[in-house]
């Protein structure tokens, strides 16, 4: 045992995901990672909350889609955040529905996301609560401590804050590049690179 190199803090997968050993991934078979995603220690993904009602079991012979949480590329899940599929009564029966994150989604420390979909280039601050079935479009910035009510739709280029959340501003034209997470990806892992200038 002692001859082995010391285990890194992160498991780095073939597709470039960096998953902290201290992250809690429940039901990993139902969690899809697009690649180059960072999952920090103490982050949690509830892949076990898979949908119990399939949309159309009879229409095709395809196996049922059991994805509970789908995450795109270059997402960053900070320490202590939680991704949790939303659930509701569907024709009298309770079922979970999949939670989908696009590319370049940053989830801040201590935030809980129960959205239906989060688009591309979304920054979710620290200690944010995103209610069930919320829909967050692309290029959205959610400031710290925001509470996004269930079912709320947040259109693209919104800056959102408050409890309940309200749109407090518009992402300016020059602010699009700041959502890019490629550089942040390089700064964590077993061989972290210094942040570029």
């Amino acid at each position: 045992m002692s001859r082995r190199p010391p285990r890194g803090e992160y498991i780095e997968t073939d597709t470039g995901n960096k998953v902290a050993r201290k992250a809690t991934l429940v039901g990993t078979q139902n969690i899809m990672l697009g690649g180059k995603t960072v999952i920090m220690p103490e982050a949690m993904i509830r892949g076990d909350l898979v949908r119990t009602l399939q949309p159309s079991p009879s229409s095709s012979g395809a196996p049922p889609n059991n994805t509970a949480v789908a995450i795109g590329r270059y997402c960053f899940l900070s320490r202590g955040c939680c991704l949790r599929p939303p659930g509701r009564l569907y024709k009298g029966l309770f079922t979970y529905m999949p939670l989908r994150l696009g590319d370049h989604v940053f989830v801040g420390p201590g935030s809980v996301v129960q959205a239906a979909t989060v688009g591309n280039y979304v920054h979710i601050g620290a200690k944010v609560a995103i209610g069930e079935f919320a829909i967050i479009k692309d290029y959205v910035r959610i400031l710290d401590d925001t509470v996004v009510p269930p079912n709320m739709v947040i259109p693209s280029f919104s800056i959102v804050a408050g409890q309940p959340a309200r749109v407090i501003g518009e992402v300016p034209e020059g602010g699009h590049e700041a959502f890019e997470l490629r550089e942040l990806y390089k700064t964590v892992g077993n061989n972290p690179q210094p942040a570029p200038v």
Partner: peptide, 14 residues
């Protein structure tokens, strides 16, 4: 409040 659970299976209706 509570619809008849027997009427549920019509999953194609979204």
């Amino acid at each position: 409040s509570h619809p008849d659970p027997n009427l549920i299976p019509a999953p194609d209706n979204t």
